[in-house]
Computed example of a mutant assay.
Amino acid sequence: MKIAYVYDAVYPWVKGGVEKRIREVSVRLAERGHEVHVYGMRCWDGPATIERDGVMLHGVCPGEGLYIDGRRTVPQALRFGSSVFRPLLASGADVVDCQNFPYFSCFAAKAASMRRGTPLVVTWHEVWGDYWYDYLGRRGAFGKAVERLAAGLTDHHVAVSPSTARALEGLGVAGPVPVVPNGIDLSRIAAVPPAAEEWDVIFTGRLIRDKNVDLLLRALVRVREEVPDLRALVVGDGPERPALERLARDLGLPVTFAGFLPDYDDVIAAMKASRVFVLPSTREGFGIAALEAMACGLPVVTVDHPGNAAGDLVVEGVNGFCSGLSAGEMGEKIRAALDGGALMRDGCLRTAGGYRWEEIVRRIESVYGRSVGDVSSEMWEEGV
């Protein structure tokens, strides 16, 4: 098959969960004999189309920042959505897989797929629903309406977590929606040695409001009362970083803000040199960093929230803990994970073992095959 992926940000120039999923899946699909193309912003120097690890990357418009004041910008999403239509129309793809966010590209992909008579698969990493009002205030009604319209663009949807699949059915998508989760490269993770510098607590991710790293910092104040020599590492960058660094100083916390590390193996090495991974986010469509931490043998402390699919990965006391949104409770869960981490190591590794990329790729390949077959059947019945 000739497969086209659509997402504005491209790995490794932008390092996030969606970008990483597309990269890992596309490279493995290419190894299995498929022709794979990724259409995004041109985040790199040089020609608009380049080959990387057997996958063709197409920069359909100049790269630009994704966030202003911690929020995804509508003008950027519109520019990318309008720019991707013609390249998709000329792509010759057998199937197009468009990531649901930031939505406008889904409509462009739908128009191109209709013109070409090829199936459109929309992969859903999150469903925001009423969260749109928290994100945009009264303008959230517009975002919520666009999300519902995007859910009606195709009959071929994929959800990356069970909670996202359930939320899609709430948008009117006929179920059951196939769940194809994110995965991890267990052999690569196993081969990475721990970093030389050790940490008690680690967080990795974009420093945006919904990650709630401020909650983690306040929780560490409680932990430090019983662990005076506590050391914490925050890996990542984003608009919240200056405020978080100020808060850490005001709280007198020994927290190191490392920014984005230059290589994926560096992140894994830092995890392996840590004792507990904390993900206080209330907006996670899957929680790949939590799964990677489990693959490193780290218990995960995350929050119990309907918007946080990482909670689906956690079995209480077996591979981590779920906390409420209070610093006191999160501090208690972090202490429990620090105390019981060695006993939970096997549970963490067992959980991670169920998410190998090789199995994920076989599942997504099956979804694409069914979608192509469905469109071919429809065209046959219509006499096309």
Rank of each mutant, 00 (worst) to 15 (best):
M1N: 04
M1F: 04
A9S: 13
V10T: 07
P12G: 00
G16K: 09
V25P: 00
A30Y: 02
R32P: 00
G33I: 04
H37I: 09
G40F: 05
A48N: 11
M56V: 13
H58D: 06
H58A: 08
H58S: 05
P62H: 08
G70E: 01
T73S: 15
T73Q: 12
F80E: 00
G81C: 04
A90Q: 14
S91W: 04
V95I: 08
F104G: 01
S105E: 12
A109R: 00
K110Q: 13
K110F: 14
T118K: 04
V121K: 00
V121G: 00
V122S: 02
E126R: 05
E126M: 09
W128M: 11
Y133M: 12
D134T: 14
Y135W: 12
G137C: 03
R139G: 13
G140V: 09
G143Q: 00
E147N: 01
A151D: 03
L153F: 04
D155H: 14
H156A: 06
H157G: 00
H157I: 02
G170Y: 13
L171H: 02
G183S: 03
L186M: 14
L186V: 13
I189W: 05
A190S: 10
A190R: 15
E198T: 15
W199N: 05
D200A: 09
F203C: 06
T204P: 03
R206L: 05
D210H: 15
D210W: 13
D214V: 07
L216V: 10
V227A: 14
V227H: 13
P228E: 13
R231A: 11
A232I: 08
V234Q: 03
V235P: 00
D237A: 10
G238H: 03
G238C: 02
R241L: 08
P242G: 12
R249C: 09
L251P: 00
L253A: 05
F257E: 01
D263K: 15
Y264E: 14
K272Y: 04
A273C: 08
V278Q: 07
S281E: 01
E284A: 05
E292A: 02
M294V: 11
A295S: 08
C296Q: 03
G297T: 10
V300Q: 05
V301N: 02
G307Y: 04
A309C: 08
A310C: 02
G311N: 05
G311V: 07
N319T: 10
L325I: 08
A327D: 15
R335P: 03
A342R: 14
A342Q: 13
L343I: 07
R350F: 06
A352V: 12
V361K: 01
V367N: 03
G369M: 07
V372S: 00
S377Y: 06
E378T: 12
M379Y: 08
